[in-house]
Design a protein around this nucleic acid. Structure first.
Lengths: 152, 152
DNA sequence: GCCGTACTGGTCAATCTGTTCAATAAAGCA
DNA sequence: TGCTTTATTGAACAGATTGACCAGTACGGC
């Protein structure tokens, strides 16, 4: 992956609210030539520095107002099996392997507390998953952002 | 916030890779009138169903290849103070208040394990934060996605 | 001093945008 | 059932934007 430089960050920051801002507008707003902005936008989309656009969609707008983290303990021999099964659950948004006692931390969403129970059950039943512990998020204290890092 | 319907989701799914796809192309690809796509795009950006574009930027592309979750225990009387302080740390990407024993779960990134130490120190020093416990992510097993939910 | 790379500022035709409009579904309600 | 409201369609327009070029310039490394 390509590291983004200061100009890239300025472009991204300017696109923050409206990613469909015309290139010309961007260019004059940033004091750059149109071609420059254009080529950098192209490079950034190619380089894989950006998540797919759908990652912008708030789960709440898809009816998933409930969020939680599920910690899972694994049968280490069946790691890949478990991951494949998790990948097939749409409510699983993300999954990390932390250092420490838990093997996986799984970000999930659901339509209701009851639905969350169903989802965590579905996770518990994945092959290779031995034990899970679900902790529901009561509040989103700071919504996901990268703005601070862009301003450096 | 407005709930997204099937057409909205189809539009978003079509925009998944390239959010700058021209409206005309979208319309014919989805078999819709241009005006329809246009008004829905407008409504979606207004309705707050989408995160800012900058949330697409991978921290790794900003030199933050190290990710972690910091669990924090709070002095409950100083909750807002703590949150305000956390908001000022650019490496804090997100923060949730879960049900259970920990008060806050803080998503952070850093340039290196050493830098992660610095960041978690900075969190520990926030007013109102009593104790923290950092667990570094060794691997991103499933990168953030909402694709599954969009296809419903 | 030379080279490669990136940026600038300019042009071009083709396409797209924002905006209107009347006509046509579709959906909710009496 | 019939009426009202709302969303969608297809069409038109002028004006702006796009992608593709180009030659000239700035800059860092060798």
């Amino acid at each position: 992956m390509q590291e983004l430089d200061a100009t890239d960050k300025r472009i991204l920051a300017a696109l923050d609210d409206d990613p469909r801002l015309p290139v010309m507008v961007l260019a004059q707003r940033l004091g750059l030539a149109r071609g420059t902005v254009q080529s950098r936008l192209e490079r950034m989309s190619e380089s894989g520095a950006l998540r797919p656009n759908s990652s912008r969609v708030l789960p709440a707008a898809l009816g998933r107002g409930v969020a939680a983290a599920v910690s899972a303990e694994l049968d280490q021999h069946r790691l890949n099996e478990a991951i494949a099964a998790l990948r097939d659950i749409p409510e699983v948004l993300e999954c990390h392997a932390p250092a420490g006692d838990t093997d996986l931390i799984i970000r999930v969403v659901a339509t209701s507390p009851d639905d969350l129970y169903r989802v965590s059950e579905e996770i518990r039943l994945c092959p290779g998953i031995v034990r899970t512990s679900t902790s529901m998020f009561l509040r989103e204290v700071i919504p996901y952002r990268t703005t601070g890092l862009l301003r450096e």
